[in-house]
C-alpha cells in the first residue's frame, strides 16, 4: 500500500473513515438546515440520549437478548436434531421438509399474533416466534452437509464394515459441521430479527419490555433520538452476535476447513 498502512490496517481504517465522514455530513446537514430532532436527530443528540437513557435501554436490551439467545440455542438444538432425523430417514425428510419451507416463507409478522394467542406465557411466545425464523437455515444447511459426505470415503467405510451410526458419527457429522456453522451464523441475525418482530406484535406483553417495544414507545412519544439510540443498540447487538459466531466457527474449523485455515499455515 502506498499509504504506508498495510492491507489489514486499510480494512479497518477505510470503513471507519467513511463512517466519520458520513456522521460529520449528517451533523452538519441537521445543524445548517435547522432540521428539528423529531424529524431527524443529529448524531450528537443520539449520543446524548444514549448516555441519559443508556441504563434503562440496556435493561430492555437484556430482555431482547435473552429471547434471541434462547431462540438461537433452540434453533441450533432442534435444527441440528431435525437435520439428523432427515439424514437417518429419507422418507421423513421428503415428508417434512416442505413444511419447514412453508414455515420459513410465511412472514413471521403474520404468524406472531396467533403464536401470542396460543402460547400464554409471554417469554415463551416470543421465543417461539424467534425460533421459527431462526431454525430454517440450520435445518437446511445441516441437511445438505449431512448428505455431502465424500463418495469414496463412504465406500471405504462400507468396505471396513461400518454401521450406519458409525458413518453418521465419524463421517457425515464432521462433513456437516461447516454447513451447520454457516447456518448458525445466518440464524444468529435472524433470531434477533425474529425477537424484535415478535416484540413489535406482542407489545409490552409482560412486566418487562424489550428493546423493540422501547422503539415503538419512543416513536409514539416523538422521542426520536431515543428511538435512534435503541436502534443503534440493536444493530450493535446483531454485529456482536455475528462476530461471536464467526469466531466460534473459526475456532472449531481452524485445523482443517478451507474457510478457517490461516494463510500462513499453508
Amino acid at each position: 500500500m502506498k499509504l504506508g498502512i498495510g492491507r489489514r490496517g486499510l480494512r479497518l481504517a477505510a470503513p471507519i473513515a467513511i463512517g466519520i465522514v458520513f456522521l460529520a455530513a449528517w451533523e452538519a446537514t441537521v445543524r445548517l438546515r435547522g432540521i428539528p430532532p423529531y424529524i431527524l436527530p443529529a448524531p450528537t443528540a443520539i449520543a446524548q440520549s444514549l448516555w441519559t437513557d443508556g441504563p434503562s435501554l440496556l435493561g430492555s436490551l437484556w430482555v431482547t437478548l435473552r429471547i434471541t439467545l434462547a431462540a438461537l440455542a433452540a434453533a441450533a438444538l432442534f435444527g441440528g436434531g431435525i437435520a439428523l432425523l432427515f439424514a437417518r430417514s429419507r422418507l421423513l425428510e421428503l415428508s417434512l421438509f416442505p413444511y419447514a419451507v412453508v414455515l420459513q416463507v410465511t412472514p413471521i409478522v403474520a404468524i406472531a399474533p396467533l403464536v401470542i394467542i396460543w402460547v400464554r406465557e409471554p417469554f415463551l411466545a416470543l421465543l417461539v416466534c424467534a425460533w421459527i425464523v431462526a431454525f430454517f437455515p440450520i435445518v437446511s444447511n445441516t441437511t445438505v452437509g449431512l448428505n455431502s459426505a465424500d463418495r469414496n470415503l463412504l465406500a471405504l467405510f462400507r468396505l471396513y464394515g461400518a454401521s450406519p451410526g458409525q458413518i453418521l458419527l465419524y463421517l457425515r457429522m464432521p462433513t456437516a459441521l461447516p454447513y451447520f456453522l454457516a447456518g448458525l451464523r445466518i440464524s444468529g441475525g435472524l433470531a434477533l430479527i425474529g425477537a424484535v418482530v415478535a416484540e413489535f406484535v406482542a407489545g409490552t406483553g409482560g412486566a418487562e419490555t424489550g428493546l423493540a417495544f422501547r422503539i415503538l414507545e419512543a416513536g409514539y412519544r416523538l422521542a426520536i433520538p431515543r428511538m435512534f439510540a435503541a436502534l443503534l443498540l440493536l444493530s450493535l447487538t446483531g454485529i456482536v452476535i455475528y462476530l461471536l459466531l464467526d469466531w466460534l466457527s473459526r475456532q472449531l474449523l481452524r485445523h482443517w476447513h478451507e474457510s478457517a485455515i490461516a494463510p500462513e499455515d499453508e
Binding site: L153, A155, L156, L159, G161, L177, H255, W256, H257
Partner: peptide, 20 residues
C-alpha cells in the same frame, strides 16, 4: 462377504478425512 480388514483399497484421490 465384505471381509472387514482383509481388503485394503486405495483410490485415485487420497480420500482422507480432512478433519482428522
Amino acid at each position: 462377504s465384505i471381509a472387514a480388514g482383509r481388503i485394503g483399497f486405495v483410490f485415485q484421490d487420497p480420500t482422507l478425512m480432512p478433519w482428522s
